[in-house]
Each structure stands twice: as structure tokens, then as C-alpha cells.
């Protein structure tokens, strides 16, 4: 479970560019839920993810993960139980290392990286099984450099890598935005499958309103650091893409976009 309590964040304090993004922002995400988050650029979606992961500091408030206060914990400490897939497919993998080496790295997340052999031969079958879920034939290309893969293949590997170890929750930061529509569709289907199989608590930021409506059991729309729409369960199922788009446009018109 994730709790954000009274989060305040001001960018560039004391300068002419001072911008208050969050003023007593609150959000609770229950164990096992899959939250889709939409909102225009600058609405605070990515900032919120970065605050959760500890990549940007907060002025006041509290981030709690599974009941534990995360304030003061550095980003790499928080990632012990957080998985994250970024918008840019190259962010989630090492391009100059093979698929097998990348998988081995991900498999060792949270453990010590000592002087034992980096690749555990006994785990190769498991990696192949995981890669086979993707249906891209990557299970037979373990020795290929990840840099030689297409963006979509790389993002698929990133997704497998991010979810390989037990997680408190998974963060998807516009992870289909840089892909062509067909590949994006594939990655999204895989995401749904993996989240379901591993029962992951998931937060997905997306600009694709259809994905937001189709996937997940809770939908949040953000605007200027506030939550303007929050529907879960049956209420969410009853919300169509058109409804979301309508609200989205209304907000945009207010902004003058």
C-alpha cells in the first residue's frame, strides 16, 4: 500500500519562476490495485512518481510505502521494492550488455553484488520462461546485445526486468509513449498480463485515454497538482473514453490550450 500525505512541493522557491505544484496533496493506493493516471503536461503526474521514488525532494508531507515512512530514504533504497519502466526504452536496460546479462542483473536486484559469478546457469531456464511470455522469440537470443533490439523489444525486456523480483508496486511512466501504435498495443497487453499474473500493485501514467479506460481498476485524472477525477471499481468501468476526453477538454479550455 502506498500513502501520500499532505505532500507540498514548490519548484524554484524564492525566484520569479516560483511554482507551487503540490499543496497538501493526498493519495492512497490500495494493495493489489492497478491505477491509471492521466492528465495534461505539467499536471504533476511524473512529479508525483518521482516524489514516490525519491528522485525529487519534497518540502513537507510524508510518503509511506507498506506502512513504512520513506522520508529521508534515498531513491536507490526505495527501489528495493519498487519496479519502474520509463518512457524511453533505453532507460530500463543496458544496451552494451547481452539479454542474459541484463536479466541476471535484474534477477539480483535487492541482493548484494559480490564476487560470485554474475550469471547463474541454473536460472537461465527461468529467464527463458519469462522471456517466452513476451512471445517475441527473445528466449532464443540470450546472447544478443540489448542495443541491437528494437525499441519495442527493449521495452518488453525492461518490463520483464522491472517485475522479476518481488515488488511492493510497479510504476509505469508513460511506458508506451515512445512506441509505434502496434508495438504500444503489444506492450500494453503484456503489461496487463504480467500485472495480473504477479498480482502487482501498479501505477500507470499514460497519455493514451483508451488504455487508461481499458486497463486497471481505478482511474485518476490530475490537473495542476490536484486530483480532479478519481473513479474505482464499477464506477470506473462505467466511465468511457468519451467521458474522460470530455473532462480533459474542459480542463484544457480553462487553461486556454
Amino acid at each position: 500500500m502506498l500513502e501520500l500525505k499532505d505532500i507540498c512541493k514548490v519548484y524554484n522557491p524564492g525566484s520569479v519562476n516560483e511554482m507551487c505544484l503540490f499543496d497538501k496533496f493526498n493519495l492512497t493506493v490500495d494493495q493489489g490495485s492497478f491505477v491509471s493516471i492521466v492528465g495534461s503536461n505539467g499536471s504533476g503526474k511524473t512529479s508525483m512518481l518521482n516524489i514516490i521514488c525519491g528522485s525529487i525532494p519534497i518540502d513537507s508531507g510524508e510518503v509511506r510505502i507498506s506502512g513504512k515512512n520513506m522520508n529521508g530514504k534515498k531513491d536507490f533504497e526505495r527501489y528495493r521494492t519498487i519496479g519502474r519502466v520509463y518512457q524511453n526504452p533505453s532507460m530500463g536496460t543496458c544496451p552494451h550488455m547481452t539479454i542474459l546479462e541484463n536479466m541476471s542483473l535484474a534477477d539480483n536486484k535487492g541482493k548484494s553484488f559480490g564476487l560470485s559469478h554474475g550469471i547463474n546457469g541454473k536460472r537461465i531456464a527461468f529467464y527463458q520462461e519469462q522471456l517466452a511470455i513476451l512471445g517475441l522469440g527473445l528466449e532464443n537470443k540470450l546472447d544478443v546485445l540489448v542495443g541491437a533490439l528494437s525499441g519495442g523489444q527493449r521495452q518488453a525486456v525492461s518490463l520483464i526486468m522491472a517485475t522479476m523480483t518481488p515488488l511492493d508496486f510497479l510504476i509505469l511512466d508513460e511506458h508506451t509513449a515512445a512506441l509505434d501504435p502496434k508495438t504500444a498495443e503489444l506492450i500494453m497487453e503484456l503489461t496487463g498480463k504480467i500485472v495480473k499474473e504477479k498480482h502487482l500493485t501498479t501505477m500507470m501514467v499514460t497519455h493514451n485515454l483508451r488504455y487508461a479506460a481499458e486497463y486497471g481498476d481505478r482511474l485518476i485524472m490530475m490537473d495542476k497538482g490536484r486530483i480532479v477525477l478519481d473513479k474505482a471499481g464499477a464506477e470506473k468501468d462505467a466511465t468511457s473514453v468519451e467521458d474522460i476526453l470530455h473532462l480533459f477538454n474542459t480542463i484544457s479550455i480553462e487553461c486556454g490550450n
Binding site: 534515498k74 531513491d75 536507490f76 533504497e77 527501489y79 528495493r80 519498487i82 519496479g83 519502474r84 520509463y86 533505453s90 532507460m91 530500463g92 536496460t93 543496458c94 544496451p95 552494451h96 550488455m97 546479462e101 541476471s104 542483473l105 535484474a106 539480483n108 536486484k109 535487492g110 548484494s112 553484488f113 559480490g114 564476487l115 560470485s116 559469478h117 554474475g118 550469471i119 522491472a162
Partner: peptide, 24 residues
């Protein structure tokens, strides 16, 4: 070829990944 060596190679290749692997 050790785990530590893989991590060293990873940090030069993509240091953001090392952070998500919960390593400083």
C-alpha cells in the same frame, strides 16, 4: 564476469538502471 563486475559495467552503460536495481 562477477555480479560486482556486471554492476560496474551497468553503471557506465546506464546508471539509471543501477538505481532501479536498488544500488547506489
Amino acid at each position: 564476469k562477477t555480479k560486482n563486475g556486471l554492476l560496474l559495467r551497468a553503471v557506465g552503460d546506464n546508471d539509471a538502471l543501477v538505481t532501479t536495481l536498488a544500488k547506489d
